[in-house]
Simulated assay, not measured.
Amino acid sequence: MNVSSFANSECLSMRVAVILVAHGEAEGAGFFENYSMIRHTLDHAAEVMALPGTVRLVASVVGGMKNCVAFRVSGYRSPQNRITRQQGALLKEHLRIGCDGLHAEYEVYSAFHATPPFISDILRDTRSHDARLLVSMSPVDSRMTAGTLHLLAEKCRGTVDGPAPVVVDGFWGDSGLRRVYVNHVFRYGRNDPGAALLLAFHGTIIRDARGCEPGFHTGADEIGSMACALRNAVLADPRNHYARVEVTHYNHDIGGTWTRPAFPASLNALGDAGVDRADVFSCGYFSDGTETLLYAGRHAERGPVGDVHFLPCVNDSADFIAHLAARILDTVDAGG
């Protein structure tokens, strides 16, 4: 899938569909859209975990009602899907500039695992493109994130449903993203000598209810590797004045034992150590949403650390979009 060679040999413009795939969250406070989001999330999880249909139905109804009431009372609305669309708009402009003269036309789409438009919808709409990229908008690869995209790409291979998509993932080991992250920390963090920095990841299950290792790719190793590298990079940076830099996890604690320490436990440990100021960077996410804004905020309000400041996710920051564009152009230039 080399753009230059395609254009030179065919004298045609190559149409490339770039599909940003995020988890997706309900954008309003309505019951049905929140029910649907939770139901799709649980159905997705049921592909690898034992979640009976009745359990998924009840959890979706109860969760949808809770969200409906809570969001209407608080006025909260998830920005995740809107941020993903904004990332796509900015990315399209970067790609236009980056591929100038290469006879390629990049069209950027946003798709979601749990809310419309779903990945299958966008794949159907892009069947006529010459090439398609599925970009995992999660920095950590697992069966539930990039793994799903690889399965979809393989399913498309050898069919008449358009070119088989190429998956862009592996951000957890991306040194370029790490540099973006470190600069982001020192741009938005308070970096006080007496403060702590918590690097927060989306947690994952590490032992099932029977105490056994899960039979699917959980992403736990990738979290550990990325967390260690990022923590070391922050500590080694000459700009760093944080007294402590620690790793924490936003866990759901469903179906077994999850990654440790969990965010509330990390806050308790800081309180026990006499730390009264903490910055939190949700580096396990490319966009802010309900977990990073609402749920984490509630834990912070109940915790012992009096002054907790949440850095924004990289969201639509210029450095992140530029890095994303570079990864995509490199993938296309390398032929996928």
Rank of each mutant, 00 (worst) to 15 (best):
E213L: 05
V61P: 01
R143E: 13
D276Q: 06
F171E: 03
G30M: 05
F186H: 10
G170W: 05
I205E: 11
A326V: 04
G297S: 11
R210K: 12
A300V: 09
D316R: 13
R179D: 11
N81M: 04
R207W: 04
T126V: 08
G306W: 05
A300I: 07
R244A: 13
D279N: 09
V166Y: 11
V166W: 02
S74E: 07
N8F: 06
E291H: 15
T259D: 05
Q86Y: 02
M65D: 02
Y242E: 00
P312N: 07
P238D: 15
F216K: 01
D169K: 07
P79Y: 01
L197T: 07
G147F: 06
G194P: 07
P304A: 13
V61R: 04
H309F: 10
L177F: 09
A326M: 03
R143W: 04
E154L: 01
E25R: 15
D43P: 03
L235A: 06
Y76F: 13
A22Y: 00
G64P: 12
H202V: 00
D141W: 10
H23F: 10
E246Q: 10
E47H: 06
A131M: 12
P165S: 06
H150V: 07
W258I: 08
Y250D: 12
E33D: 07
V58L: 14
H299L: 03
V140E: 02
H44P: 10
L324I: 09
A233L: 04
F263Y: 15
S266I: 05
E222K: 12
N2Y: 05
V245Q: 03
A262D: 08
F320R: 01
R231T: 02
F201C: 14
D288Q: 06
G215K: 04
V160Y: 04
A200K: 00
C283Q: 15
Y181E: 05
I119E: 06
Y285G: 06
R178W: 00
L42R: 07
K92A: 14
L197Q: 13
T84L: 03
L177S: 07
A131E: 10
G162N: 01
C228R: 08
G271T: 12
E246I: 08
H23A: 08
G289Y: 05
A318H: 08
H252T: 08
D125C: 08
G284T: 06
T145Y: 11
A296Y: 02
N34V: 10
V180I: 09
D221F: 09
F186R: 07
G98R: 15
S142K: 02
A131Y: 06
P165L: 09
Y35W: 10
P214Y: 15
L57H: 08
T290L: 11
